[in-house]
Design a protein around this nucleic acid. Sequence first.
RNA 1: GUCGGAGUGGCGGAAUAGGCAGACGCGCCAGCUUGAGGGGCUGGUGCCCUUAGGGGCGUGCGGGUUCAAGUCCCGCCUCCGACACCA
Length: 822
Amino acid sequence: MARPFDVAAIEEKWQARWLDDGTYEVDNDDPRERFYALCMYPYPSGAAHQGHIRNYTFGDLIVRYQTMKGKAVLSPFGFDSFGLPAENAAIKAGSHPRLFTDARMKELKSSVRRLGAVYDWRREVFSHDPGYMKWAQTIFLAFWKAGLAYRAEAPVNWCPGCATVLANEQVNPDGTCDRSGDLVERKNLEQWFFKITDYAEELLSDVDALEWPERVKTMQRNWIGRSEGVEFALALASDPSRGLRVFTTRPDTGFGVTYAVVAPEHPLLDELTSDAQRDAVQALVERATSASELERTSSSDAGEGLEKRGAFTGSYVINPFTNEPVPVYVADYVLGTYGTGAIMAVPAEDERDFAFARVHGLPVVRTVEPPADFEGGAFSGDGPHINSGFLDGLDTTSAKIKATEFLVANAQGEAKVNFRLRDWLVSRQRFWGCPIPVVYCDVHGIVAVPEDQLPVVAPDDVTMDKSGQSPLATHEGFRTTTCPVCGGPARRETDTMDTFTDSSWYFLRYADPFTPDKAFDPVEVAKWMPVDQYIGGIEHAILHLLYARFYMKALVDVGLAPGLPREPFRRLFTQGMIRLDGAKMSKSKGNLIAPEKYYETVGADGLRLFHLFVGPPADDVDWTSQTEELIEGCGRFLDRFYRLCDEHEVNFHDPFDESDLAVRHAVHRTVQRVSDDFERWSYNTAVAAIMELLNTVSKWARSEHGADKKTFDEAIETMLKMLAPMSPHIVAEIWERRFPGQSSVHEQSWPVADPALVREETVTMVVQLNGKVRARLEVATTLSESDAAELALGAPEIAHDLVGATVKRVVARPPRLVNIIV
RNA sequence: GUCGGAGUGGCGGAAUAGGCAGACGCGCCAGCUUGAGGGGCUGGUGCCCUUAGGGGCGUGCGGGUUCAAGUCCCGCCUCCGACACCA
């Protein structure tokens, strides 16, 4: 396509200027109102693809728009530069992950520059910078000293492919590794954890006030998974002084407990198992613990269809409500990691228990009366209680209260809240991450590396392979050290931290990257936090966002962030992803569409406009053959705009007349629309509004009748300003030619609509006959109801249709519509 | 299965408070620009019937409320996403 201007030259010129002039650098003591705009910390995977382009287009639009609105906008950039891909690539090439990472950071950096996205590069942060690691480790130690980090042996998710443990959040529902897709195994290992569960309640309740997409909030709530109930003891029939502790949310159904179940991992299982049942129990346990999660859950895609495998232990416990003994089973449908790892089973009111009872021939006793037309097994709804002694006749809510009181008094019960959320496993047996800064001394145990020795940095000459242990553990020089307390022999921790720790506080360092003696100065950071607009992909709805929220609260509590808000991200926007042939576009899938070819044709300006115009920002974009043509169309729009600004085909007339006034109206109405659309993330309609205005102005100015020069200039000037955050290069170029020597369009104020010009004097009123449009009248906006009705009835088309008919009713809604019912 | 979100022309999508369905763009058609056009400009373009004027239908499906429903209510269907034995 022949463009009327040199795209590449213009874009390069302005990109260089924004960078050289430090146009978007901002100081912490800036007196203007502040705005913190942030795109999620990117993993440096190389040159940007369309997903990045889309993300940074939105981010840059906000930065430029808020700047024009007169705010001091913090727009930082950096890299989540630790992580597996670089390490795996290094193993493959026999190289060092830093080489890959540095090269890819450079690529991504040049990509965002090529897009015309602007940042305060003085604030750049990246995870493998020793200057950043030092504070990452300081924070770790602060958490440890505050009891928020601890070491424990735990059954962990072990990925054989990645040769490391994974957080629960990194294991797919089908039991495979989120990264490699390998089946995850269970292993018992000593690991570091963060006590995120201490914050479960606050993490849950604070979700309500966040201006986040509802579905992200829902996902967070579900992940935390709060449930209220009672924990109590089922007395062992063999020794009633001892009990099997269980958790239930339905104490009201206690009279219906016909058996109990313990998880295969339950500590009391061995004791509960009788000799006669030992073989059966053993078989069940072996199958359950060796089976991967996949095998355990793959028999069906619906919970109720799952095979209910279990075995009788040979023991009985006493139902405290009935005082009857009930059998204890071991079954893999009870999880060792939730609640107490044991349950009371109520087959009549719980589907899973019902399914199990059916398979194993256990009795079902209804304690809640189901509706008359109820068909099916378990009824988990509300209803009057039956077969329930002192609970008979009560509804679920009152029965729960009474049953809880009973259990507290008679079965060592206590009301309890359980969470699905587990503590965050943060150690990784990998090389390319931030080392955990502790030392193990035979005398003093776990000892923190003293602050003046931070950061602990991994040596370069480490062998990385997939042997299954931490690469750092194989490096004697690193591993062997002395105890900071006694000077005796000690060994270093050789695990590194989960990279999600790096992305949990980077936004604080951005706000104050200059402080040399601490992670950040809370006074400086308070000037920017919380982030006003956070932008990123929906894939981080749980992991990153939950961890960062936890960090923020924990940092305040351990004293590193006094006075800072406990929630880091006030507003969140999750953009849709780009799909190619139905699959998400990503480097790992290898289905990328590189932006370069579009830079050559429509330029960064055209590509940005496309991403804004293609549809609602939150929606996914399907990249199809038609997409190319859409992008061309966006380029053509910019061409048309450029040519109009040239004024070659424009005619001018002198006295200002009605046609000019109409254009002024259109200009101001468009300003109104675009401003509103910007505020509500409706960029596609904002672009449409400007396209419409260009069509109007173009037709008017190139007509024989011509345009008033002042009105024309106002229209062009206003369009330039409105397009500035969208397609910043060409707009800056045109502005400079029209206003040589003046400050850039990007330093102008965002246009404000004149209310008098937004208001219309006349409008088209629709006249309907029985709801069908029969006439259109041009009327004054101030038209009264009675005048509207009169006008409508008098309209020639209507009068004709009304001959011989009786008007039953006239609904007048001036000035838009009148509906005549006959 | 549960919880979210969505379903509108050939396509991406618009309709912000119940009031003209289809803005804007892509594609397509016609005309002009006439050396041709992958450029530019002008006009047309939901579907069906009709020679015309005009008429009918139309926002996943079926009901309902209303003068008026893409929008509100009830019941379904389909697709996408999250969770998925969490007691």
